[in-house]
C-alpha cells in the first residue's frame, strides 16, 4: 500500500495552492492511494543502469539571438487583469516572503 494519508493530501493542497475541504481530502486520499498503488510499478523496471529520458526527441543548444521582439503593449499585458492599479497588477496583502 502507498503512504497517502489525509495529512499528506492536505500538505500537497498547500503546496499546490488548492484549498481542499475535508470531504475532498477524504475522497482524494482514497483515489490517490489507488492510483499510486497502480503507478508505483514503474520502479520495478527503473533500474540504476537505465538513463532517464526527459525529452522524447534529443536536441541540445537551441538558442535565440539576442535581438528584441515579441513585446506586448501595456494594454495587452493588462487586458485580462482581474484587478489593476494604473499600470500594474494589484494583489491583496502578501503574507509570506519571496523565496
Amino acid at each position: 500500500m502507498s503512504e497517502i494519508t489525509p495529512d499528506l493530501v492536505r500538505h500537497l493542497g498547500v503546496l499546490a495552492r488548492i484549498q481542499l475541504n475535508d470531504e475532498e481530502v477524504e475522497r482524494l486520499t482514497g483515489q490517490l492511494d489507488a492510483i499510486v498503488d497502480n503507478i508505483a510499478k514503474v520502479s520495478e523496471v527503473a533500474t540504476p543502469d537505465v538513463p532517464a529520458t526527459s525529452h522524447p526527441i534529443a536536441l541540445e543548444n537551441v538558442f535565440r539571438e539576442d535581438v528584441p521582439g515579441d513585446m506586448l503593449t501595456l494594454d495587452q499585458v493588462l487586458q485580462n487583469a482581474p484587478e489593476r492599479a494604473d499600470d500594474r497588477f494589484r494583489v491583496t496583502a502578501i503574507l509570506g516572503e519571496e523565496q
Partner: peptide, 9 residues
C-alpha cells in the same frame, strides 16, 4: 502590514 501590493513584470 501592507494592505495590497502592485506587480510589475
Amino acid at each position: 502590514g501592507a494592505e495590497f501590493s502592485l506587480v510589475d513584470y
